[in-house]
Design a protein around this nucleic acid. Structure first.
Lengths: 148, 148
DNA sequence: GTCGCTGCAAACAGTTTGCAGAGCT
DNA sequence: AGCTCTGCAAACTGTTTGCAGCGAC
């Protein structure tokens, strides 16, 4: 079973109707699985083939998919929420954001597990999630700068 | 020299005028130095004694103080920017956010330094800054839950 | 006196919501 | 057929901006 059918099943299993709009939003995500799309991005992509979709529907669908934990909300501080597939390794998955070209690079690391343990011991805080973002300059932009 | 005078000096040294509104915003921050205030928070505090201040001025002043690196912007994902004093240890200073009561606890750690080193080696990414937030349930809210 | 700063109100951007009609099951 | 879902437009929220007058230096 491919990813698309799997996600459609998840919707139906939870008693949500499988409308064309929802299918198209899911397809757009699968087509751009490595991106971090915003509502407006999705709207633009789906609109090309299905101009009748409404932006509000996109927002409602994204909210739904996030609630089902199919998608994760991301906030890169650019004033709009972005989304990515929520897969198993999400907890150890962080983002490097280039402040020059806004490119986002993914990064895997589980060092935070031990840090969470320390925090739990020191503060009695029960940690459920964390967000770690690095801001800096990617390799391409560094080269760009030395060249000029 | 106390903190207030020091900050006023910093403004003047940079050719910014020392207006009453700016002084009052700075005072409000000093009075609540351990909080993470939003523009609206500051507006409310200053307005009590100086009802003539405008919200736009607060926004402009916060922007100015952030540019001078007197304040740091924080984004706890609640839809508004918050600010705290930018001091020397900021880079190793993170936040634990309780998803129940929204309380924010400060946390110090420098483990990320070595992680930044690893990232630099693996990705050639020159890291300038990072944001690390932990979401979970604080000790008080955990007790609250077991009691009911 | 000059020019930066302020208050006000209007503009803005992303997101949410009310409602009447469309469409999945 | 029933009730969820949709498109549209209007409302909302935090923030920014244009402008005429005010005030720090």
């Amino acid at each position: 079973m491919d990813r698309f059918e799997d996600l459609c099943d998840q919707l139906q299993k939870n008693d949500y109707k499988l409308t064309n709009q929802r299918k198209n939003v899911i397809k757009a995500f699968i087509m751009h699985a490595d991106s971090h799309l915003s509502a407006e991005d999705i709207y633009g992509i789906v609109k090309q083939k299905h101009p009748e979709i409404g932006l509000a529907t996109v927002y409602r669908t994204l909210e739904l998919l996030a609630e089902l934990e199919i998608l994760h909300k991301l906030d890169f501080g650019d004033g709009r929420l972005r989304y990515e597939f929520a897969n198993q390794k999400t907890h150890h998955h962080h983002h490097l954001i280039c402040t020059d070209c806004a490119k986002v690079i993914e990064f895997e690391d589980d060092m935070l597990d031990s840090l969470e343990q320390v925090i739990h011991e020191k503060n009695g805080f029960q940690i459920l999630n964390h967000h770690l973002k690095f801001y800096g300059i990617c390799q391409a932009c560094q080269k760009e700068k030395t060249r000029v």
